[in-house]
Amino acid sequence: MPRVADIAIGVLWPLRVSAFLARTVVAGLRGPPAKDTLMLTVRLLLRSIPVVVIVTFFAGAMLTVQAAVSLSGFGAASMSGLIVGFGGVREVFPLLAGGSLAARTGAELASQLQAMRVTRQVEALEMMGLDSLQLLVAPRIIACIIGGPLCVVAAMVSGLVGAHIIGVFQLGIDRGAMWGALLQAVGTVDVIVGVVKGLVLGLLVGVVATFEGFCSDETGPRSVGRAANRAVIRSMVVVCAASLALSMLIYGRLVQT
């Protein structure tokens, strides 16, 4: 049974994260360190893109298998590209990019900041008269905002490569038919929507992960692992909820009943 205090903490959590974001925006407006932000962005991309590429390659391939199986009953396996386009490019690939970002970078950011908190490095910065939100948190969130869309684009490309390899080379779907169906489903607008999703998911992963690392009251070495764990779980949940909300907002109005 969850305790009343735990429920209260859960209810207050979004408010605390929002307040943390507001404070970080105010601190960030004073100018986060450009060199640190650039280095963090490069590091994020180097660490997250390989995970994104591997995960979405297999997701694209599996989506194609299921699309081909289900459509072959209607003699329309060549239309598998439609499902890869609607389901993969619009939904699954951006979602997996956000999830991979949460798992790889979210855990790293939270553990870094919690370790700095535990070893008093954050206090040391503040004792130098420096703003730790401006110096530590803002660059990490900006790196996630920059990295999010790039991860989504990488996810789309990798997912389509996976779909192509399995669909064309393994299942024998005609290349022209596969890509023709795909391009019926997906246009430039969908890529732009994916990039916007990447921005939002990157922001959410960055804020949740830095909040869990920076704002924890826990002490001791174990708190580092716990912060990383919380960051991954909570940013995954937020990424899923935000993906659904964005899909309903952007594509929900296109439903004809």
Partner: peptide, 9 residues
């Protein structure tokens, strides 16, 4: 300030 654990980066 010199911290107990030094707080070096």
């Amino acid at each position: 300030m010199l911290f107990q654990d030094n707080a070096l980066f």
